[in-house]
């Protein structure tokens, strides 16, 4: 018989406490959406006496909610597409075509990883305004892609360099062009890294608040982060409605996270530890 393992028991106990601290506010948020304001005030953290679906229903029936979600999705998908294409194309040049100054150009793009978006946010606002992009999704998409470039070029270049050189040479002998190799070989063979970068760019864009905040004024173009803050402003004391709203916005993020966690972890370990 095994003796009582106090080490393992203590380990599990600590893990459960920390896990409870993580899950407690999330559960309270989820449950809060089923309660009336009065019940929420009296018993904020217990199971609801009556499961009321009307507050969730209100949010789901609110066309603004769907417009926020759609805007977020649109912005995130286009940001992913533009970041992947421009980043991968640039990284391909750095990986396959050495020319005088190419190293400097790459260092220039990599510097972007260090520059905080926040530091340039005021001139960026002026720039976006002068380009006529205020209140358009492009005013969010293009700067997001630009600030994501350094990170993606670094990961792409590292990955492209690891693709066997002989593959490129064999294809050259078979008669492929440099551009053809990129589309027919580099991209299809790089799905792991494309997936990783895509997931990161997507999550960053989906969760972005500061940039939409300065670029978008019209609530019709709001992503959900802005929409949520607006909703909170409207229902300042009705926490049950706000909590229902928050829960519904988190659902896609959580589903996405569970589906893509492999890529997220790969990105963290590949991008972070090597960085």
């Amino acid at each position: 018989m095994r003796t009582f393992d106090w080490r393992d028991t203590a380990r599990i106990a600590i893990l459960l406490v920390v896990a409870a601290t993580i899950l407690f506010p999330l559960a309270a948020t989820f449950l809060g959406g089923f309660k009336t304001s009065g019940e929420l005030r009296l018993a904020p953290f217990s199971l609801p006496e009556v499961w009321r679906f009307e507050f969730y229903g209100d949010v789901l029936g609110n066309p603004n909610f769907w417009s926020y979600m759609w805007n977020s999705l649109f912005i995130a998908l286009l940001t992913v597409f533009i970041t992947l294409m421009t980043g991968a194309m640039a990284a391909y040049v750095f990986s396959h075509i050495k020319f005088f100054g190419s190293d400097y150009i790459m260092s220039y793009l990599l510097l972007g990883m260090m520059f905080p978006l926040a530091a340039a946010v005021v001139p960026l606002f002026i720039k976006i305004r002068d380009l006529g992009l205020l209140d358009t999704p492009w005013g969010v998409i293009l700067p997001q892609a630009a600030f994501g470039l350094g990170f993606s070029v670094l990961l792409f270049k590292t990955f492209f360099d690891q693709l066997p050189r002989e593959l490129f040479e064999a294809a050259r002998i078979d008669g492929i062009s440099y551009i053809g190799f990129f589309f027919r070989f580099t991209l299809p063979l790089s799905t792991p890294i494309l997936g990783t970068v895509a997931v990161f760019v997507f999550v960053t864009s989906w969760n972005n608040y500061l940039l939409p905040l300065i670029v978008l004024n019209d609530s019709a173009s709001f992503p959900w982060t802005l929409g949520m803050m607006q909703y909170r402003g409207e229902f300042i004391v009705e926490w049950n409605k706000i909590l229902a709203f928050v829960t519904l916005t988190l659902v896609p993020a959580l589903i996405f996270f569970l589906a893509a966690q492999r890529y997220i972890v790969a990105g963290l370990t590949g991008g972070a530890v090597k960085g």
Binding site: G87, A90, P123, L124, I126, L142, I179
Partner: peptide
Amino acid sequence: RLVTVLVFLPPALLLFTLFVTLPLIEA
């Protein structure tokens, strides 16, 4: 090679310069 460089590099450079470098310089 030249064509590839001229097609593949400018989008990234333009994007980066316009929305990262220039705002910082202008700041």
